[in-house]
Design a binder for these strands. Sequence first.
DNA 1: AGGAGTTTGTAAGGGTTACTCCAAAACGCC
DNA 2: GGCGTTTTGGAGTAACCCTTACAAACTCCT
Lengths: 213, 213
Amino acid sequence: MQADEAVTAAPRLTRKGQATRDRIAAAAAALMFERGVAGTSIEDVQAAAGVSPSQVYHYFKDKKSLVKAVIAFQTTQVVQAFGAVEPRYSRLDSMEALRAWRDFAVNLERSLNYAGGCPIGSLGSELAESDAEARREVAAGFALWERSVVEGLRAMRERGELRSDADPRRLGLALLTMLQGGLLLTQIRRDTAALEAGMDAMLDHIESHLIPA
Amino acid sequence: MQADEAVTAAPRLTRKGQATRDRIAAAAAALMFERGVAGTSIEDVQAAAGVSPSQVYHYFKDKKSLVKAVIAFQTTQVVQAFGAVEPRYSRLDSMEALRAWRDFAVNLERSLNYAGGCPIGSLGSELAESDAEARREVAAGFALWERSVVEGLRAMRERGELRSDADPRRLGLALLTMLQGGLLLTQIRRDTAALEAGMDAMLDHIESHLIPA
DNA sequence: AGGAGTTTGTAAGGGTTACTCCAAAACGCC
DNA sequence: GGCGTTTTGGAGTAACCCTTACAAACTCCT
């Protein structure tokens, strides 16, 4: 009664195998972030990961399932670096933390030369209409992310800092939505003006729901 | 001294020629909205427009320039239907108009079965890293759209309805950014919750800058 | 009505890309 | 140390898709 048998008769991976599998996924993620899914061929991934053609197909059934792995990879990356539960610098449960979060996003985009947009948002946009399963996985990634953002706001409300008429669920979702729009427009406009204006407006809006100390 | 000579030694189009050219562009726009640029082959466009292969290349140099035409097509569509200067229903210069605008977007997405996202936003996301010229054209389209939204807010301020510390430029840009994020998440999640929460938050924020009558 | 220029159909070339096959090498466990 | 399994290499195939060449049909102006 192995649990993974039902999924895909998983061949067990040796340590080395796991390493190359990860290397392929990471290389694919980086390339697809830069050039999009359609813009990166399997051959590109091979070259970037330093593997031979057969290896890609040994570890992934086809390109679609490689994309699936990339989505999972980017989701964990984003939620770890940009989520609120265990973010790199602090929990998103104060205005200071939220402002720092905004600055982090803006500076990150700058350091990336305004390219790529959101690692999972752009994947979702490209795949939503062509790969239903991929769309669902991206949506699940967003749900995870959303939950982690909402959690911070909920903590603020439970500590009595946020007014009771402020709904953490809706505010958190709106905040994430604004971030997505900002990242998309950053990618298109090659500047962070929209990201900054959007996040500032949204954060001011949240701040207006604070209970004055 | 023909003006268009400098552009691309434009062969003059007969009425019929113009019609098929438009038909090709419209068919391409529809397909690329549904399946993305990479997901629609020239052959698909031929079939949808009811033309032969040579016709596409008679009216468009290559696929890239067809995409360029699609961007122009969608930009005018969006700005006409969703701009604020001459929108379908009213100018975006009152809270009522803004709320109606929000509802229009939500209902439109519903009627489209939550598919496609923003006609130019998704084009921008897909092309930003692979086609610099296309990215610039999409950015120009957004600039047009942005100006038309800002115009409405500016009118509100000039009529003395909006406080003087409310910057129409930043608010308008934030509003458009939120709309983009909402449309993107609608496409990925297949529901309008994010669009609704985001637009409502942003509109509440704007409303909080109104001068009470 | 005639003729130059525009529009359209057919057929096919050339390049890219996802994917497969088979055998050799490396690995891990007894 | 040896054997079953995993991992790797490289050549090869079939499909897809962008693009072009050429000739026939049609439009429009005078």
